[in-house]
Design a protein around this nucleic acid. Structure first.
Lengths: 326, 326
DNA sequence: TTGTATGCGTTATCAG
DNA sequence: CTGATAACGCATACAA
């Protein structure tokens, strides 16, 4: 089933079929022929061959999504946002899940070969050796020379910290990501700054790093809780880490929020079902993905992209934060 | 940067380059020439053009993943499993997220055009009109005529129900999926059967349907709890639904497990951080994805695939289930 | 052991 | 307004 078959069925030449079906028939093909061709294509169930088209045009109309963890709900939502935007723009989406501990070069090589017009990198630093010709947009990082889209992490972190400080907390722990993506570095810096602003020294022992699973987070949070002088509040880089803090607190009979306030980041769905419901910084992950795809599409189209865009976040105060009891 | 460039640089013909780089040089090309070609390709940073290769060979070495909700952690893990298996087999993975309420025809059409050699359908029924030539494998369903891979849902549901019945529960509610995928129909049937086996009539009022978000699930579970004679236990089609049950119980001052036992399905990560930790049926989602990809790859390679495979599950008893107090 | 020639299905240029 | 015709980059049958 090729355009030649359609041409034969319609009694026209193959090039006429191509002209009609790629919408470039305006003023060149008679309305009658146009209709005949379309009908023939329809009846035969003709689909243009994507490989042939890509070969000829040099564009695949497809983008690669490089995410560090398809399993994390925040990425899930971001992917969905990007994906929907891509489909409606007529782009297919190739997925590359790159576990943190593995080199991302190999899978990218495969995509670089041409099936993809550009990449969306989620959090992960794009490889130094830039892909050959493909456009790149980075999400949740702001490297120079590459367009990026990210959340107002500073604003979110500051809001959460201000909330805690206003409640009266001074000994505030930070349960952070062990892997040092830029977005997490920002949070640590802000935590330091906020404490200093409140006249407290951010003790090194109050920072604990963890991977993105509950077990590891519980271990890290436990270390904080087992301190001679444990924190009265913990701000977490992610709701998953906050979940680990809940686990650690429960294991030690530490009550939230009476004995310990906990704040998260991302507002994952499960934050609301935690007991007590988690105070966290909420972001529109789907929009983040959609905006990022938009930037990538613009870049692919050769439009001058903005260097970067930052999207707002909002602190959602729920029941995991309260004034300190000590 | 094409094979012609490499040929020129190596001082050989383009076909020699092709032979060498596609590994079909065995016994046909001298070791010396082979080395020269490889070095030239390496130095020039040559990548074969995927579109041209796909056009020529008729195979894209890429598969489509059709999932109903990228946002659901279970799918995330399944995707990761399928994705890893695909990469190691040299296949790229295209993602199609099809929200339940939307037709899946449109995005599939795009992929059908040839960039994809086959599809993995996660839960979602493959379209009646079979793709043209692409292979299909279905996950978590077992349509006839199409190879499938699924979990032992019967075994898992039976185990959970037996556990509840053994604890002494007789009035057991079922919080099910509103959308009637085969896997969910099985659960409802088993629920009916188990109750009848225990000598109880499965009252229609004890079944509530919900979508896969906490809000909706809380509403549905609430309806169960507000019954004149509420159930003493609820078995849920998914941990997300179980989370909704927690929410509904909390809102009503119903204690888990003292006043209400809750059992879930999937063993999502957050099941352990719920308070109390959720009793649920655990499955290896990554393996499910990997096995499914294996079946698809076999089908694409023309090997006779098994008609279907079922993967084991295991009940994990935690603290959300206890004997009924009434 | 290597090179030549051909065609995969499109799009796009250029005659007619 | 429409039809030949030439690439796009690769794999492969066949010739040398």
């Amino acid at each position: 089933m090729t355009s030649v078959d359609v041409a034969r069925a319609a009694g026209v030449s193959q090039s006429t079929v191509s002209l009609v079906l790629s919408g470039k028939a305006a003023g060149r093909i008679s309305a009658r022929t146009d209709a005949v061709v379309r009908r023939a294509a329809e009846e035969l169930g003709y689909r243009p061959n994507a490989a042939a088209r890509a070969l000829r045009t040099g564009a695949a109309r497809s983008v690669g999504l490089v995410v560090p963890d398809v399993t994390h709900p925040f990425f899930g939502k971001t992917m969905r946002g990007a994906q929907e935007a891509a489909w409606t723009a007529g782009y297919a989406v190739a997925l590359v899940d790159v576990p943190l501990d593995r080199p991302l070069e190999a899978p990218l090589e495969a995509l670089r070969a041409g099936p993809v017009d550009g990449f969306l990198f989620f959090s992960v630093e794009p490889p130094a050796r830039r892909p050959g010709g493909e456009q790149v947009v980075v999400i949740e990082a702001s490297p120079k020379g590459i367009p990026w889209v990210r959340l107002d992490t500073e604003g979110g972190t500051d809001a959460a910290l201000a909330h805690l400080i206003e409640l009266g907390h001074r000994r505030i722990g930070h349960l952070g990501s062990r892997v040092q993506y830029p977005t997490f570095q920002i949070r640590t810096e802000r935590w330091r700054a906020a404490l200093e602003g409140a006249g407290v020294e951010p003790a090194a022992e109050l920072w604990a790093g963890s991977g993105f699973d509950f077990e590891d987070a519980a271990r890290a949070a436990g270390a904080l809780l087992d301190l001679a002088q444990p924190p009265t509040a913990i701000i977490c880089d992610d709701d998953i880490l906050a979940g680990g803090a809940y686990l650690a607190a429960r294991a030690r009979g530490v009550r939230i929020p009476e004995d310990l306030s906990v704040a998260g980041f991302d507002d994952l769905d499960f934050a609301r079902v935690l007991s007590p419901p988690l105070t966290t910084v909420s972001a529109d992950a789907e929009r983040l993905g959609a905006v990022a795809f938009g930037a990538l599409a613009a870049a692919i189209a050769g439009e001058p992209a903005h260097a970067g865009q930052v999207l707002p976040v909002a602190l959602v105060v729920r029941e995991s934060t309260a004034p300190p009891s000590r």
